[in-house]
Amino acid sequence: MSGSRVDLKVVLLGKEYGGKTSLVERYLHDRFHGDVPYQNRTSKGRPFYTPTIGAAFGAKKIEVDSRTVTMGIWDTAGSERYEAMSRIYYRGAKAAIVCYDLTDGTSFDRAKFWVEELKRNEEFCKIYLSGNKFDLVENDKSRRQVDYHSVTDYAEELKAEVFETSSKTGHQIKELFFKIAQDYVKEPRNNDAAPEVPKTLNLTDKPKKADCAC
C-alpha cells in the first residue's frame, strides 16, 4: 500500500462470459460501443471484448464526500482453470464484485463459490453481487435464470449488496462503483487512519508496548 497510489483495490470475480470485462469497460471508458456505427450493426453488440487471460487492470478516480479515491480495478479471467491464480488478484482487495450472468443459472453457483472463497481468505473484503446483462432480461422476462429475491436473501446473510447491471445500457453501473467507494470512505479503517493501523497491530502483537501506551 505504501508506495502505490491506488487506495481501493476492487476485484471482479465470476464465471467466464459473465460480462466482467464489459462491466469494467463501461465504467472506465463509458463505452459499450453504442455510439460506434460498427457496433450497432452487430447482432450481439459486443464484438471487441476478448477473453481475459490472467487479469486486466484499470484505474479510475472517483469523488465521494469531497474525497478523491483512486480505484484500482482487477478484472480477472473467469475460466475455472485460472482459479489457482486468482489469489494474487484478490489478495488485499477492499471490495469484490462477484458477477453472475442473469441469463445463466450456473453462473450464480459459481458466484457462490467465489463468495465462499473470499470469506475464507479475505475477511476485510466487502462483497458486492452484480447480476450482469440486465438488458437481456429486462425486455424478455423468460430469459431470466437467476431470481432477484433469492439473490437478495442470499446477500442479506452475507451483508452484501446486490446490483443488477447492464453494460449495454449502463444500468446501475455507476451506482455500483459509487457505492463501493462510499462504503470504502465510510469504513473507519480506511479513513485516513493510516498511522493507526500499525499502532493497533503493535499493541496486539507485543504486550510490552501496550504497557508503554498505558
Binding site: M1, G3, S4, I53, G54, A55, M85, I88
Partner: peptide, 12 residues
Amino acid sequence: SMDLHLLTFVTP
C-alpha cells in the same frame, strides 16, 4: 516494494 506479483502481467 509495490507488492506487485509478476503473474499479474506475465500471464497474458
